[in-house]
Simulated scan of single mutants.
Amino acid sequence: MLLRIRISPGHEAEFEKLWAEHAETVRGFPDNHGQQLLRTRGRPGDYTVLTDWTDEPSFRAFEHSPQQQAYLTRLWAIRAGGEMQLLDVVRGLSPATTSEA
């Protein structure tokens, strides 16, 4: 899942703290396989959230969970806009391994 989100000016630090706290909750869902918060360079209020889920039904179950709904209530107060996209992995590549000399 990819979420692009715009945060109202002056609320960036608040959002980053809120996201970090909620990320610990998300980590507890067994079908979540990781997440990242990225900020667009040169645009302080523009963020991208990437999360990896087992499948769409598990993501949708999380999306309707009380934990997510509580987070969204707080987020919407500082959010200026955004969009969500569900993505399918077409191909994956693991990082190259390096050997020590």
Score class of each variant (00 low, 15 high):
Q35C: 07
P66L: 03
E14V: 13
Q68G: 01
T97C: 08
R74W: 05
R79K: 13
Y47D: 01
I5S: 04
L75M: 08
A13F: 14
T98G: 14
R39L: 09
V26D: 00
P30A: 07
T98R: 14
Q36K: 14
G82L: 06
E14K: 13
T40P: 00
W76P: 01
F62R: 07
A23S: 08
V26E: 02
D52V: 13
E24I: 06
R4P: 00
E100P: 06
P9W: 09
V90I: 15
Q36P: 01
W19R: 03
H64E: 12
A70R: 06
L86S: 10
A96D: 14
E12H: 02
F29S: 02
H64N: 11
G34P: 04
A80C: 00
A70H: 05
L37Y: 07
L75C: 02
V49G: 01
A61D: 10
L2C: 10
E24D: 09
G34K: 12
N32P: 08
A20R: 14
F15H: 01
P30K: 05
E12K: 00
L50W: 12
T51F: 04
W76L: 10
L75K: 00
S58Q: 06
T54A: 07
E56S: 04
S65W: 02
W76N: 13
R4C: 02
V89N: 08
D46H: 08
T54Q: 08
G42V: 13
V90Q: 15
I5C: 03
T73W: 11
D31C: 06
E24K: 12
I7A: 00
H64L: 12
Q35I: 03
A13W: 13
G92E: 15
E12A: 02
L18R: 05
T48D: 07
Y47N: 02
R6F: 09
P95V: 07
P30W: 05
Q85I: 10
R43P: 03
T25A: 00
H11D: 09
E12G: 00
T98S: 15
P57Q: 12
L93Q: 15
R91L: 13
S94G: 11
R39A: 05
R60E: 12
G82W: 02
S99E: 15
A96M: 12
Q67F: 03
Y71L: 03
R41C: 07
I7F: 00
P66C: 05
P95D: 11
M1I: 06
Q36N: 13
Q69M: 08
E63I: 00
A101W: 12
L3H: 08
A101T: 13
T25I: 06
D31H: 11
T25L: 01
R43I: 14
W53I: 00
Q67T: 04
N32G: 07
A13C: 11
R4I: 05
R4F: 02
E14P: 02
Y47T: 04
F29C: 01
S99N: 15
I7W: 00
F15N: 02
S99T: 15
G10N: 08
A77V: 12
M84L: 14
P66A: 07
G45I: 03
A101R: 14
L38F: 11
Q85N: 13
T98I: 13
E63K: 08
D46K: 03
R39S: 05
H11M: 13
R74L: 14
V49L: 10
E24V: 06
H11W: 09
T54E: 06
E83G: 09
V26K: 04
T51S: 12
M84P: 01
